[in-house]
Design a protein around this nucleic acid. Structure first.
Lengths: 246, 246
DNA sequence: GGCATTACAGTGGTCAGACCACTTGATTCC
DNA sequence: GGAATCAAGTGGTCTGACCACTGTAATGCC
């Protein structure tokens, strides 16, 4: 570390801090699981202010290299696929028309997840899905809460897959999906038959998991999505039909 | 933004800031190329201290979403997915278990993508997939190049889906998938019948896209994955059977 | 009038010191 | 022995100050 300081006479404070971490991680003096010095002590050692050190620590935590615990300290961690979460939320948010297209990612993940859920779901998983289904039934007439409950139901299915990759990817686009759910609810809320559809479709999806037939569950879920699209299409046609009379 | 502030009475300062950026990017009020308010003004608007805002800004800059210029301001930039691939190369190389689970993400994305490719693939897409198939055929006996060509073939299918969400997700785990391909090739290279299987399976997948039957293509691809798993399972059994004789 | 220099406003970069919230271990009390 | 309290050390956040950079406007010189 004294070597780093000797070399860093022309580095900015931030560069100095990042160089310290880069070198320590690469030369193995900092390993996963190890705890860093406290912020006050480390900022003194590195010759920078504590807020500046915090900027660097927060950045490294966001990149998944550190795990910062309030009251305990900062720990070096093995970065894993969970770091995807923040990146995706911001990355996909910058794409135009993402709320429509993200539906494809949703279908991809959920249809594979429900197959796995048929094989892997525990009693605890099934209870949670059932509970989310109840909550969904209780919020059918409210687009915002209903959309959120709808998302939570589907998320419970993905979690029942017990695939870290699928769960993480789904979580990464979770905010986009929740917004997509709410948007679809708002658009279709006045369509005749929508409430009956929501009740039946979600109940049948749940039953298909209980029956543990992966192919049937996949098909049932795709039907759910296709009919949802049909309601949305009808709603758009209705809106178009009504407009010239306004 | 006032809505965000009204909702955020129980959020920490940092959470408030990140929620602001997430929402601004999602609702399009912040677009790539746009300049943020100055730190002093923005921290006042968000009701947080300037050092705290700087922590968030530095983090977002590290992730590639902002470009901070001394004396000029901070600008929103389009995140580059290649940043994440580099990150994976460095960070996940030590996590062998991820290669198995990420297969579920691969199946999810590819099976949905191939359905869309049957509907949406252009002549140019089909040409590219065909060209990748030829390359795959030319590298059957080399695990490294063959694995890479195999990955490129599948990636071309995902691109032919013309879904930004699927393409982005696939690209982000692309390095992991390429490694997974190579690993599977290395493990199965000595299995009898592997070459014939690789030839037939990939040709049939390509033909299924040409026939534009989404359900059949999905099934064909799942068969491809299942048989690949069988070869891998056989290879593991062979290795186990041979070991006691060594 | 055109060019060069200087000053100023606004920007980010960093600092010191203070206070709040959380965690953990030690001590005291019942 | 168990529960409650306290203290030390941790991270989380704040205020206010000053430094470095950028760009524009004003001023002076030719």
């Amino acid at each position: 570390m004294s070597t780093v300081l000797a070399e860093s006479s022309d580095l900015s404070g931030a560069e100095k801090v990042f160089a310290f971490f880069r070198d320590a991680l690469l030369d193995g003096s900092l390993k996963p699981g190890e705890r860093l010095l406290g912020e006050r002590e480390l900022s003194l050692k590195l010759g920078v202010s504590r807020p500046l050190l915090r900027e660097a620590l927060r950045s490294l935590a966001m990149l998944g290299f550190l795990d910062i615990r309030h009251g305990k300290g900062a720990y070096v961690r093995q970065a894993d696929i969970n770091v995807l979460s923040d990146f995706f939320t911001f990355s996909l948010a910058q794409q135009p028309d993402i709320l429509d297209d993200v539906m494809q990612a949703r279908i991809a993940i959920e249809c594979q997840a429900i197959r796995l859920a048929c094989e892997r779901a525990t009693e605890s998983d099934l209870k949670r899905i059932g509970s989310r289904l109840t909550q969904l039934m209780d919020t059918l007439h409210d687009p915002v809460e209903g959309g959120a409950a709808d998302f939570a139901f589907h998320q419970a299915i993905v979690e029942a897959s017990h695939s870290e990759a699928l769960t993480t990817l789904y979580g990464a686009i979770g905010e986009l999906l929740r917004r997509s759910h709410v948007q679809r609810r708002e658009v279709t809320i006045s369509e005749p038959g929508i409430v009956d559809y929501l009740v039946e479709a979600h109940r049948e999806v749940f039953l298909s998991i209980l029956e543990r037939d992966a192919n049937a569950a996949d098909l049932k879920l795709r039907d759910h999505f296709a009919i949802g699209d049909e309601f949305r299409r009808r709603s758009l046609i209705s809106a178009f039909t009504r407009r010239p009379q306004t």
